[in-house]
Amino acid sequence: MTKTTGAAGDPPYLRIVAEIRRRVADGELAPGDRVPSTRRIAGEWGVALATATKALTTLRLEGVVEARPRIGTVVAGAGVAAGSAPAASPHKRPSPAPEPGQEQDQDQELSLDRIVRAAVEIADAEGLPALSMRGVAARLGVAAMSTYRYVPSKEDLVLHMADAAFGEESCPVGAPEDWRTRVELGARTLWSLYRKHPWLAQLGSLTRPLLVPNLMVHGEWILSALDGHGLDPTTLFDIHVLIYSHVQGLAAHLELEAHAEATTGQSDEQWMDSRAPDLRALAESGRFPTFAKVVGGFEDGYDLRLDTLFEFGLTALLDGLAPLVEGREGGRRRDAP
């Protein structure tokens, strides 16, 4: 991105706003095209995420751009002249200064559900680092402090967001009783939610899990599938944790890759292509013969696909656990002598 548009004395966020306006006005960005995300802006301009968020929020309030879940921030309408006020957008009207009493009316329409949905949309489109209470208020067109009447902090808001996101899908009633089929269904349901909301995998850890009801629903499904097979409580819960860690551990890379792509401007394939000389040097060094042999055996290179890896790992994990769960020979239980 060219970084020369805007007056030299302007705050950084206004220079970013002016540059994106210029690109829209010049036709470099057409309606519906993605504009740089907060992470991309932060990386290219060398500014904090808060500054990048402020720039995009300003453009949203002006009607130049809009955030679309699972797509990102896109151009909302016709271009604007560089450095001038934006033209009206067919998708989103510019937000004028509220008339006396108007802001109060908007605040009265607020609810916790609206706040949570707006926050989820921001996190889906821009990533969790772009989320702020002020940004949510701006998206809803209300006073910055009004959201605090419904949720006391960003940390509390994130918990509400996680609970809402995990509640979007659940395993069906009347599913097969076979333990493995039920575990597979539960793991795939969780994976689909992490796919839909990649930021979810950045919350909590195995040692400090999220204690929200709708995530517990998914845990209950896995535990109930494993229950009744003679496993002692510790072994049963350890298996549940292993299955969850497989799903969440791979899902963490969804958001990490999105952040890396936004920061570097390269897809994972482009990044690997740019590192081809380094990879070749490692393979030809003679220090890693097995690595060189395996890499040399790829006909078209190695394509790391997270969905494929998830399924491969789930199958391997359940194959290994099956003798233990089913009490077959070779599956020694913890309580066995």
Rank of each mutant, 00 (worst) to 15 (best):
287 R>C: 11
111 S>R: 06
45 W>D: 06
82 A>V: 15
262 A>E: 01
308 T>G: 15
255 E>Q: 15
254 L>C: 08
91 H>D: 07
71 I>W: 06
264 T>A: 03
310 F>H: 00
316 A>L: 12
330 G>A: 09
30 A>W: 10
265 G>E: 02
333 R>I: 09
70 R>K: 13
285 S>Q: 02
30 A>L: 15
110 L>R: 05
283 A>W: 09
228 G>L: 06
57 T>A: 15
43 G>N: 10
203 L>H: 04
165 A>H: 05
4 T>P: 05
286 G>P: 09
231 L>N: 00
270 Q>W: 07
283 A>F: 08
2 T>H: 12
237 F>K: 13
142 V>W: 07
81 A>S: 12
172 P>L: 12
144 A>D: 13
145 M>V: 06
133 M>V: 11
31 P>W: 04
325 V>I: 15
24 V>N: 05
165 A>V: 13
180 R>N: 07
211 L>R: 08
263 T>C: 02
322 A>W: 02
32 G>T: 05
262 A>H: 03
151 V>Q: 04
1 M>N: 08
225 A>T: 06
178 D>V: 03
278 D>K: 10
44 E>P: 07
41 I>P: 00
72 G>D: 08
301 G>V: 01
37 S>W: 03
325 V>N: 00
235 T>R: 12
101 G>S: 05
142 V>M: 05
218 H>Q: 01
185 L>E: 03
3 K>D: 11
3 K>F: 08
175 A>E: 13
67 A>R: 15
273 D>R: 13
173 V>W: 01
133 M>T: 00
152 P>Y: 07
243 I>A: 10
39 R>W: 09
71 I>M: 12
251 A>C: 07
150 Y>N: 01
225 A>I: 03
178 D>A: 11
217 V>S: 14
76 A>E: 04
322 A>L: 05
231 L>Y: 07
320 G>R: 01
218 H>G: 00
109 E>I: 04
139 R>I: 02
37 S>V: 08
30 A>G: 07
217 V>D: 11
190 L>W: 01
48 A>G: 14
188 R>C: 10
189 T>I: 04
230 G>P: 01
174 G>R: 02
56 L>H: 10
143 A>Y: 08
66 E>Y: 11
18 A>P: 05
260 A>P: 01
177 E>Y: 05
82 A>F: 07
146 S>D: 14
235 T>K: 07
112 L>Y: 09
84 S>D: 12
298 F>W: 05
265 G>M: 06
307 D>E: 14
117 R>Y: 08
157 L>I: 08
187 A>K: 06
52 A>V: 01
254 L>S: 05
226 L>I: 04
35 V>L: 08
280 R>Y: 12
301 G>Q: 04
217 V>M: 11
149 R>Q: 12
169 E>M: 14
205 S>F: 09
